[in-house]
Design a binder for these strands. Structure first.
Lengths: 239, 239
DNA sequence: GGGGAAGTCAAACGCGCGTTTGATACGCTT
DNA sequence: AAGCGTATCAAACGCGCGTTTGACTTCCCC
């Protein structure tokens, strides 16, 4: 069973090395441009191993998604389970910070955010599954936060939707527009400090805009109007 | 010279048909996934015509960019030459509306916006040229608008930059995240009405946020601490 | 009216890709 | 020791891609 001279329980077997190498290549190049040959070369395994262990490139990609999804849930418990007692502004900042960090975090085996970011703009066969298992829960969490910020206006579905799009759009920009950003601002580094500043900016920018979109400030804005109806984060988030 | 039975000045010669077909294919599939065979089939010309008239796929793409760039300038004079007498809020709305319309406008031979949107997230060999000729002018126009909205705070280069990123990020989202949007909101159409509403939302959302980021109208908040040192916007903007 | 440039065309070339094949080696069971 | 399932490997297959080739047609000009 064990190929070379490894007894049995070994974390360095061929499927694991393939998963790791494939995660790096898929995150760096995307599903289409990543090559099975490149992955196998990086993993130091034979070319046919992908088809033997994962039934082809698609199967390997699906396995990487499953694997990294679980790892990401462990690493970022995230705003789907927010610590209580935070103001909506604080929850928005936590959401934005985690979202941005996930996508821009290179280095460690944290490809999940990069794979998600890629799927959004270059869908593969796995997008439906990814939407159900990852994107929609995150989206519902954000909707809950924004709904709280909007107050009574949060009952307006188009407004709520567009505000969420605005938040997510700002975050995705820092991930996907990097080639242009580098050309427009050659001195900009986009290191951890800049990322933190960017996430604070997005959270403050969005919170101010959402608060402004809410009705008049003269009246108790948050609590009373949405006392009725369903709790803010009912459907989808944990479904 | 003229191939079949066409005397001379004919708008339907092979290079023109190739340009048109290539624009559609490049806009729809991107540079990499668009195929020379597909373009030639759509244009109804022989496969070798691309290499004969444009010296290959790259040359054809460059020609499409040049051609559509000129056409786009004709169609959208745009906010680089804004009509005077508009408030900064109105100028921002014009900018956002044109930007969004350019990118989402399908149908007519208006591939330029789609090609630009693609280049931002999937750069090709032409991105440097495109940045200089198209993106940077647009970016500077937006910077001017946002600087006006920010007031004294507009002297802060990082704040100005991030506000511009926020505006552009919101716009790009509607273009690039369409697969996910359709899955999250299957009933959403994204037709002309929704696009118009989205552009109004982005403009209002951003204007409110930028105004909020500006110091209070009663007191100048930002100016004193950074009075010393070099002028804030010296390098890069026009260099 | 004959020479040559310009243009078109079917066919093929070379390459990289995902995948498959068949041989080979290993370890466990009986 | 024989048998068998598991795993690895080098080699090749089949396909689509961008590009090239060489022959053929058409038109202008001297």
């Amino acid at each position: 069973m064990a190929p070379r001279t490894r007894p049995s329980a070994d974390a360095d077997d061929t499927p694991r090395r393939l998963l790791r190498a494939a995660g790096e290549e898929f995150a760096r190049f995307g599903y289409e441009r990543a090559t099975v040959r490149g992955i196998c070369a990086r993993a130091g395994v034979n070319l046919a191993a992908v088809n033997y262990h994962f039934r082809g490139k698609r199967g390997l990609y699906n396995a990487v998604l499953r694997d990294s999804h679980q790892a990401a849930l462990d690493r970022y418990p995230g705003p789907t389970t927010p610590p209580p007692g935070l103001s909506p502004e604080q929850m928005l900042e936590v959401f934005v910070r985690d979202f941005l960090e996930r996508m821009l975090d290179e280095g460690r085996p944290a490809w999940h955010g990069q794979l998600m970011a890629r799927e959004i703009i270059q869908p593969t066969h796995a997008l439906d599954q990814i939407t159900d298992r990852f994107i929609r829960p995150q989206y519902e969490a954000l909707r809950g936060i924004v709904r709280d910020l909007l107050g009574p206006a949060g009952q307006s579905e188009p407004l709520l939707r567009r505000c969420c799009f605005s938040v997510v759009g700002q975050c995705l920009f820092y991930k996907h527009a990097q080639p242009v950003i580098r050309r427009l601002h050659p001195d900009l580094t986009l290191g951890p400090a800049e990322r933190a500043a960017a996430s604070r900016h997005i959270a403050a920018f969005s919170a101010a805009a959402i608060r402004a979109a809410a009705p008049s400030p003269s009246e108790p804005v948050l609590s009373p109007p949405r006392r009725r109806g369903s709790p803010p984060n009912r459907n989808g988030a944990l479904a």
